[in-house]
Computed example of a mutant assay.
Amino acid sequence: MQNGSFASSNTVTRLTVDVRVLETDEDRLDHLKPRVPHALPDGRIPPEATNPFLLVQAPIVDVPGSGSLPGDRFIAIVDGDEISESATEYVDMKDDYVELHIPKKRVDELADGFHALSYRVYPEGFGRQVLSGATLIDLDRTPALGRLLT
């Protein structure tokens, strides 16, 4: 705790600041961002890219001391919510990414517009969880020629 006094005219004001460090059980690695191979260059996701699921490629963790190992569990996150159906175990140390599948049903529950897509890695056994950086995706189910008149 730090205290300070400030004098102004004949009045003394005391300011007390309580400094705390918040710690979490995970590391955030912003350089690791998921990729959606069927997304358009502007981030839009074509409706056909979600059937039967939206394919997400999650880069393996490549930080010394926190590298991905077989048995680690990867899970997709959309707008801060984990998509439990997407959980996948990392098995092959030859791959640079893990494929996550977000079921069409879960994608259909999302509103049109922009969403933050990330993923979390739960290490097998011990170690800190890792949260990736976010990729912005755009769901746009509007027909190519605009909304249909009814």
Rank of each mutant, 00 (worst) to 15 (best):
L22F: 05
T24S: 15
T13W: 08
T11P: 02
N10G: 14
S9L: 13
R28F: 08
D18N: 14
D25S: 13
P47Q: 07
K33Q: 13
F53D: 10
V19N: 08
T13E: 10
T11G: 01
L15W: 03
L22D: 13
A7F: 06
D42P: 06
D42T: 07
D25N: 15
H31R: 12
N51F: 03
L40A: 15
E23M: 10
R44S: 15
L55V: 09
P47C: 02
D25L: 05
V36I: 14
K33I: 11
E48R: 05
R20G: 05
D27C: 03
D42V: 07
T13P: 02
D42A: 10
L40D: 15
D30A: 12
L40C: 06
D18I: 10
S5G: 11
V21Y: 09
D42Y: 09
P46V: 06
V17S: 07
R20M: 07
S8N: 13
V12T: 14
P37K: 09
V21I: 15
G4V: 12
V21M: 12
L22I: 11
L22E: 12
D30R: 09
N51D: 10
A7T: 12
V56A: 02
L40N: 15
P46I: 04
D27Y: 12
L40R: 15
L22Y: 07
E48F: 05
V17T: 14
V56N: 00
L29V: 13
H31D: 06
N10K: 12
L55S: 07
V36C: 05
L40M: 14
L22V: 11
L29G: 01
R20A: 14
L32E: 00
T24H: 14
L54Y: 01
I45T: 01
F6C: 03
E48S: 07
A49P: 03
R20T: 15
D18G: 09
E26M: 03
R44G: 04
D27I: 05
R20H: 10
R20Q: 14
V17E: 08
L32K: 02
D25C: 03
P47L: 07
N51P: 00
P52R: 02
D30L: 08
A7K: 14
P46H: 09
T11H: 04
D25T: 12
T13N: 11
H38V: 01
E23R: 14
E48C: 02
L32R: 03
D30F: 04
G4K: 12
E23I: 05
T16G: 05
P52M: 03
A7L: 08
T16W: 04
G4I: 08
T11A: 08
P37E: 08
I45N: 01
P37M: 06
E23G: 13
D27W: 09
N51I: 08
A7Y: 07
L54N: 00
P41A: 15
G43W: 02
S5M: 11
V36H: 03
P37H: 07
E48N: 08
H38W: 03
L22K: 11
V36R: 03
L32D: 00
D30H: 03
I45M: 04
D27R: 09
L22M: 05
D42W: 11
P41H: 00
A39F: 00
H38M: 04
D42R: 04
R44E: 14
R14V: 11
T24G: 11
A49T: 04
V12A: 05
L15F: 10
V56L: 05
H38G: 02
E48L: 06
V56T: 02
E48T: 06
T24A: 15
D25Q: 11
P34K: 00
A39W: 00
T16D: 09
D18M: 06
L15N: 08
